[in-house]
């Protein structure tokens, strides 16, 4: 029996050392230690051995079994290693380019818009939205634009024919015309009509002017406006907001100045300049950046707010012009051509 066991181990070692694939291994394993294998058969012959020899023999068989198992383990490890190596294929050339195009890019106007919204979000402004097709009421009347104001002229503003109806844009006055909004201030009116102060919104969006397209004019462009309505809002608060916004956007050393101006829906009104000498590509001391002012009492009256109680400020700017200044872009049409070489510059 001892000899048999020795022989078994010798054979197993020889056999397993050359096995390289899993099926051969499995059959060898079954032959050696499986239920019908040789070792099992030997175990079964224990019964025919004298009782006093059994412990010694049992010990021998166990030792043999351990040795066979070790041989099996070794063989399996070799096979697994070979299998994994086979999965790999040849080594890579890490300097070959990844074949996938990318990365994607956000349009520069989206980037500016989102950056402005993030900055304003930090001081409590939430984004408000409104339709691009508007009625005369929301675009002009409620903002106390005189009936014969040039902004209303069909020379400057796009109108729709009388018969055309918009299902999800309600007219406030039956006779008024539909138009393409000329500013996002209509969103301010809608927001004020829908709710009560305090209100703190930023309304970015697409607006339309009937203009000859050239390097600085485009039939549609984008504006961003802020509106804050509360008790005791002051000119000082407005200045504080714009100081904060443009220091955030253009750098801490940025200064803001107000120049008195005239807008129909604010009083007093200002044009806003930002100091620009520290900005690359803006070769002037002051860069005109937008308009602002204290909401005119007539606008409050139009939306049903008591001007004696509520005060507020509004600020508006053109996003294209800001982006052109910041990035040094000299033609507004590039924003709408979407040449990939343009888009990828702002990633």
């Amino acid at each position: 029996m001892q000899e048999l066991l020795k022989d078994l181990i010798v054979r197993a070692r020889a056999e397993l050392s050359v096995i390289a694939e899993r099926p051969a291994f499995e059959s060898a394993k079954a032959r050696l230690v499986g239920p019908n294998g040789e070792l099992t058969a030997m175990m079964k012959r224990m019964g025919s051995v004298a009782k006093e020899e059994r412990p010694a023999l049992g010990k021998l068989i166990n030792e043999a079994k351990q040795q066979v198992q070790a041989l099996l383990d070794g063989a399996l490890e070799r096979i697994v290693a070979a299998e994994m190596a086979a999965q790999l294929g040849p080594q890579v050339d890490a300097t070959l380019p990844a074949p996938d195009a990318g990365p994607g890019t956000f349009h520069p106007l989206t980037q500016i818009r989102e950056e402005m919204c993030r900055i304003l979000r930090k001081v409590g402004f939430a984004v408000a939205d409104g339709p691009e097709v508007e009625t005369e009421y929301y675009c002009f009347d409620a903002l106390s634009t005189p009936v014969d104001h040039p902004a209303r002229d069909p020379q400057d503003t796009f109108y729709f024919p009388e018969g055309l109806q918009f299902a999800n844009i309600a007219k406030r006055n039956p006779g008024e015309r539909y138009l393409l909004r000329t500013h996002t201030s209509s969103v301010q009116i809608r927001t004020m009509l829908q709710g009560q102060p305090p209100i703190r919104i930023v309304s970015p969006g697409r607006v339309y002017r009937r203009d000859t397209a050239d390097a600085t004019h485009s039939a549609n462009f984008h504006q961003l406006e802020c509106l804050y309505v509360d008790r005791n809002v002051t000119v000082r608060d407005l200045k504080a907001l714009l100081d904060y916004v443009f220091a955030s956007l253009l750098g801490k050393e940025t200064k803001i100045r107000f120049r008195p101006h005239y807008f129909g829906y604010t009083e007093p009104s200002f044009e806003v300049d930002a100091s620009a000498l520290h900005l690359p590509k803006v070769n002037k001391e002051w860069m005109e950046i937008g308009g602002c002012g204290m909401v005119d009492p007539e606008v409050f009256a139009a939306v049903g707010y008591d001007p004696a109680v509520w005060t507020g400020y509004a600020f508006g700017m053109g996003l294209e012009r800001l982006a052109m200044n910041l990035y040094g872009i000299d033609d507004i049409r590039y924003f709408y051509q979407n040449d990939a070489r343009f888009l990828k510059q702002f990633a």
């Binding site: 919204c117 979000r121 930090k122 001081v123 409590g124 939430a126 984004v127 408000a128 939205d129 305090p198 209100i199 703190r200 919104i201 509360d230 000119v235 000082r236 608060d237 200045k239 504080a240 907001l241 100081d243 904060y244 107000f258």
Partner: peptide, 16 residues
């Protein structure tokens, strides 16, 4: 016009 830090009351409003 003096320069001061903006004061922002928290309003419970989400973006549109």
């Amino acid at each position: 016009i003096p320069s001061v830090t903006p004061v922002a009351p928290g309003l419970v409003v989400e973006d549109a």
